[in-house]
């Protein structure tokens, strides 16, 4: 179980979250959607215990930040092993299972800076899974993946949630989110616009992005308006 109640955050004087209440439990795969600057990443950072006043147990929550990269030319296995830091052990079985799940077991000895972006993204996910935390917080886990790899990652996350994990992922690809998540949280300008099953939350998400919903549940982007401001 993870959540925040009436969370208000201002960064540099600008209100980023204006009273967000959110709670997620085992079995849920929550997609956090909304335009840039809606406060999605800030909400995830709060859940991860990275904002002042928010503390969480490192063994309970695994977090992958947006565009996560590692410094140095770590090998994939070295990177995945970092997920064991909260336990202070070097549990090779946990790391092996995580790499298997993410399809990077064959890359164990390769350097992170010598594999493709998609493979590096999956290795980062394996690093989070190696912690075996009940809660997974992921910022854009499917960004810069090719369509097939994106679907693979989403299916993996849905499977983890079905297995009893709590998965909260910031996703820009709303259609992908609608296809796999069990629940969708739509944020705009620091407020919750919708929170519920994707089928019910999609109209709110579409409204945020200026999208038109098809009758079959598909979403199509309307011609964009001019830049404002």
């Amino acid at each position: 179980m993870i959540g925040v109640a009436d969370l208000r955050v201002a960064l540099g004087g600008r209100p980023v979250l204006q009273g967000v209440t959110f709670r997620a439990g085992p079995g849920e795969f929550v997609a956090v959607c909304g335009p840039n600057g809606a406060g999605k990443t800030t909400l995830l950072r709060a859940l991860a215990g990275l904002l002042p006043g928010c503390r969480v147990q490192p063994r309970q929550v695994a977090y992958v930040e947006q565009g996560a990269r590692s410094a140095w030319g770590l090998t994939v296995i070295e990177l995945v092993m970092l997920g064991r830091i909260p336990w202070g052990d070097a549990d090779a079985d946990a790391a092996g299972r995580a790499m298997q799940l993410c399809g990077v077991a064959g890359l164990a000895g390769r350097r992170m800076d010598r594999i493709s972006g998609g493979q590096a993204r999956r290795a980062m996910l394996a690093r989070a899974l190696a912690t075996e935390a009940p809660v997974l917080l992921l910022d854009e886990p499917a960004a810069d993946l090719d369509p097939r790899a994106g679907h693979q990652v989403m299916r993996l996350l849905a499977g983890l949630a079905a297995g009893g994990s709590t998965v909260v992922a910031v996703l820009h690809a709303v259609e992908l989110a609608a296809a796999y998540a069990t629940r969708m949280l739509v944020l705009d300008e620091g407020r919750v616009m919708a929170d519920g099953p994707p089928a019910l939350a999609m109209p709110a998400a579409a409204a945020c992005f200026g999208m038109e919903l098809g009758t079959d549940g598909s979403a199509r982007l309307l011609p964009p308006r001019e830049w404002e401001g």
């Binding site: 977090y63 997920g83 909260p86």
Partner: peptide, 18 residues
């Protein structure tokens, strides 16, 4: 071990308990 964790950046390292 703390320096290893910092290879992931200060924020992610903090979530690992560093």
């Amino acid at each position: 071990p703390r320096l290893d964790g910092l290879a992931l950046g200060e924020a992610t390292a903090a979530t690992l308990g560093v």
